[in-house]
Amino acid sequence: MKFDVQHIAKLAMLKFTDEEAAEFEKEFESIVGMVENLPEIDSKGALLDPSNQMELREDVVVPSMPRNELLSNVPHLVAGCVVVPKTVE
């Protein structure tokens, strides 16, 4: 089995050197080998557990966390704005 490790890494937004990717491919083969032994199961019915119903809260306006607290962990903040690299040329 051959995996395109670099393709999956791209989807996952991860970067591997060729050396890391080669090592990863070996590990990945054994892990996928383990998980792929699943039986065919008659796939009728819903996948959600009907006995575990979720209850959503009322959509009402309540005070939220203060802005400065919410932004307290932002790695790069300028004048209260979150800074990211330029996205448009």
């Binding site: 991860l14 970067k15 932002v74 790069h76 990211v84």
Partner: peptide, 20 residues
């Protein structure tokens, strides 16, 4: 993603470079 909180990588390239 290095933007809102947590570890943040290199910022001298594109947004994708920051994510990666």
């Amino acid at each position: 993603d290095g933007v809102k909180y947590g570890y943040s990588g290199r910022r001298d390239g594109s947004l994708t470079d920051l994510y990666l």
